[in-house]
């Protein structure tokens, strides 16, 4: 069986000042068989090339939106990308089934932590709740929404901690790429963070032969 083809689309309007996203992106760059695209570098004027992006979507099985979680949401170019690329009649709506069966996920850095993103926390909603527009976007386009991966407290994170998150991210990318893994059974998992890094968590998601 062929390895799954993964595309990481990085959306960061000020990548040069980023630490968390840099660490994750470098982990992705160092991963085998992962296409990495720095979207703000490709479209500094927001003129997203729809054709190019559609081809990219078609050529990959797993799409990862990697971005900081600004104002409980994605950066504007990512929204522009969603608006322009996921066209009616192509991604959704009448005859819109080109993305059917693909997987999509958010990998995000956040200033807050899981404790704050809680019903009784300062932000009142969980990450999952706030990410539901992306979940629903995937659903409308007949894609499967994977559990998100969050780097919390990204403003105050130590280099050692960041290194662990990057290693975990790399583990996840390798896992997603492995055709023997059953990604559909991940729907019980709320966040990739819950799958303890460097344990044998991958074993639980084997395809039954």
């Amino acid at each position: 069986m062929q390895s799954r083809r993964i595309a990481v689309l990085l959306f960061h309007p000020r990548f040069e000042n980023s630490e968390a996203n840099l660490a994750l992106y470098e982990a992705a760059l160092a991963s085998e068989g992962v296409t990495c695209r720095d979207m703000y570098e490709l479209y500094p004027d927001f003129q997203v090339d729809i054709e190019t992006e559609k081809v990219c979507m078609m050529e990959h099985d797993v799409i990862i939106w990697q971005h900081p979680f600004y104002w409980y949401n994605c950066p504007p170019l990512m929204k522009q990308w969603i608006d322009l690329v996921l066209e009616y009649g192509w991604a959704y709506g009448k005859d819109g089934n080109k993305l059917e069966g693909k997987y999509i996920m958010n990998a995000l850095s956040s200033g807050g932590t899981f404790e704050i993103y809680r019903r009784d926390g300062r932000n009142r909603f969980t990450y999952r709740e706030l990410l539901s527009p992306f979940d629903q976007t995937a659903f409308l386009c007949k894609m499967k929404y994977l559990p998100p991966f969050v780097v919390p407290g990204a403003n105050r994170i130590t280099p050692e901690e960041l290194e662990k998150f990057a290693a975990h991210y790399k583990e996840i990318l390798a896992f997603l790429r492995d055709p023997e893994r059953d990604l559909d059974s991940l729907d019980k998992v709320e966040y990739f963070n819950q799958l303890t890094p460097q344990s044998q968590w991958q074993e639980a998601y084997c395809k039954t032969r």
Binding site: I50, D83, L84, E87, Y88, G89, G93
Partner: peptide
């Protein structure tokens, strides 16, 4: 130009 074109819908 299909961008933000609601006629399609």
């Amino acid at each position: 130009d299909n961008a933000w074109d609601k006629n399609l819908l």
